[in-house]
C-alpha cells in the first residue's frame, strides 16, 4: 500500500496518523468517561456532574468535568513508591497504552478511513488486544503491593481465558466470510437477509447470533469491566493492579481502558454488525455516512457496557473462570460446529 512513498512522506504519515489516533483515543476516553458518569447518574436517579450558577463550574451540564479531570491528572504529582521496581513501574502503563494504540490503528472507521489495512486484520486485532495483559502483570508486579499483585494475577488468568471464547466466536465470522481482511469482512455483509434484516453476520444464522453474544461477553471481560472487573475489584482489591499509580501514569491506564472498550466494540461492530454498513441498505450509505454508522454502532455497544456496569454485581474469580471455561467455551465450540453444518446444508 505504501510502496511508492518515500521515507520522509512515510514518516510524516506515521506522525500524522499517530497524532490522529492519539486524539481519537483521548477524545474517546473523555467522551466515554463523561457518558459513563452521566449515564450512571441517570440510572441511579442522580444528575451527575453539573455546572450552573455563578463562577467557573464544569461547563453546561458538567461537560468540562472530564476535561478538568484530565487537566488535574496531568498536573498531579507523579508518585513512585520507594519499594517499587522503578523501571518496570514506569514502563507498565506505556505497554498497555501501546497495546491499545496499535490495535486501534487497524480499525476500519469507514470504507476509506483506516490507518492501515492489513489483510490479516482480524487476526492482528485479536493478537494485539492481548498485549495489554503484559502491561497489567508488569504494573501489578512492579508496584510491590499485595493488592496489585492479586489484581495482576487475576487479570492475567482472566484475559487469557477470555481470549479463547472471543477468538472462537470470531472464527465463526471468518468461516462465514472466508476472509481475515476487515474491509473484506465488512463488504461481505452488504445487502439484505431474511427479507428485511440487513445482511450482518449477527443475523446470518442463529449460531452467529449466539457468537456475537459470546464475543461481546468475552469482550467485556477482556476490558475488565463489571461484572468481570475482578482485577480492579474496588471492594476487594482496592484498585487492583493500578493501586499504586497516580497522576499521568494512572491516566494512561484509564485511557487504555476506554480505548480497549472502543476496540472491543469496534471489532464486534466490524465482525458482527456490518461495520460501516448502513442498517438499511442504500439508505445514508455513502462516503462519510460510513463513519457515522461505524461510530454509532460502536457507541451503542459502549453504552451497553456502561449499562452492564451500573446494573450488575461482580463475579467471584473462580466463577469468572467457570463462566469462561464451562459456559462460553463449550458454547463457542458448538457454535463453530453449528456454523459449519449450517453453511454446508442451509447457508
Amino acid at each position: 500500500m505504501f510502496e511508492n512513498l518515500t521515507s520522509l512522506e512515510w514518516l510524516l504519515w506515521l506522525i500524522l496518523a499517530g497524532l490522529l489516533l492519539f486524539g481519537l483515543m483521548a477524545v474517546n476516553a473523555l467522551a466515554a468517561v463523561y457518558a459513563e458518569r452521566k449515564l450512571s447518574a441517570f440510572m441511579q436517579d442522580r444528575l451527575g456532574p453539573m455546572g450552573q450558577g455563578a463562577g467557573f463550574h464544569a461547563g453546561k451540564w458538567g461537560m468540562l468535568q472530564t476535561v478538568a479531570d484530565a487537566l488535574k491528572l496531568i498536573l498531579k504529582e507523579d508518585i513512585i513508591p520507594r519499594a517499587a521496581d522503578r523501571r518496570l513501574f514506569i514502563i507498565a502503563p506505556y505497554i498497555i497504552f501501546i497495546g491499545a494504540f496499535i490495535a486501534i490503528a487497524a480499525l476500519p472507521f469507514s470504507e476509506y478511513i483506516q490507518v492501515i489495512d492489513i489483510n490479516l486484520g482480524i487476526f492482528y486485532l485479536l493478537a494485539v488486544c492481548s498485549l495489554g495483559v503484559v502491561g497489567l502483570i508488569t504494573a501489578g508486579w512492579a508496584s510491590d503491593n499485595k493488592w496489585s499483585l492479586y489484581g495482576a494475577l487475576r487479570s492475567a488468568a482472566q484475559i487469557v481465558s477470555y481470549e479463547i471464547p472471543a477468538a472462537l466466536s470470531i472464527i465463526v465470522v471468518v468461516m462465514l466470510t472466508s476472509t481475515l481482511d476487515l474491509q473484506g469482512i465488512i463488504r461481505s455483509q452488504e445487502g439484505v437477509i431474511w427479507g428485511i434484516l440487513p445482511n450482518w453476520i449477527i443475523f446470518n444464522n442463529p449460531f452467529a447470533f449466539l457468537a456475537f453474544f459470546i464475543y461481546f461477553i468475552s469482550g467485556v471481560a477482556e476490558t475488565n469491566r463489571t461484572p468481570f472487573d475482578i482485577p480492579e475489584a474496588e471492594s476487594e482489591l482496592v484498585a487492583g493492579f493500578h493501586t499504586e499509580y497516580s497522576g499521568m501514569r494512572w491516566a494512561f491506564f484509564f485511557l487504555s481502558e476506554y480505548a480497549n472498550m472502543f476496540i472491543v466494540c469496534g471489532i464486534a461492530t466490524v465482525a458482527f454488525l456490518g461495520g460501516w454498513q448502513s442498517p438499511v441498505p442504500g439508505f445514508m450509505d455513502s462516503g462519510a455516512w460510513g463513519l457515522f454508522w461505524f461510530f454509532g454502532k460502536v457507541l451503542f455497544l459502549i453504552f451497553v457496557m456502561i449499562w452492564f456496569r451500573w446494573t450488575f454485581p461482580r463475579l467471584r474469580v473462580d466463577q469468572l473462570m467457570g463462566v469462561a471455561w464451562k459456559v462460553l467455551l463449550p458454547l463457542a465450540l458448538l457454535n463453530i460446529f453449528g456454523v459449519g453444518l449450517w453453511s454446508l446444508y442451509i447457508g
Binding site: 450512571s40 440510572m43 471492594s235 446494573t311 450488575f312 454485581p313 461482580r314
Partner: peptide, 16 residues
C-alpha cells in the same frame, strides 16, 4: 452489601 458484591446502583436506590 450490594456494594461489597460490586453492584453500585442498588446502593444509591437504597440510600435515596
Amino acid at each position: 452489601y450490594g456494594l461489597d458484591i460490586g453492584a453500585f446502583t442498588p446502593f444509591l436506590y437504597m440510600f435515596r
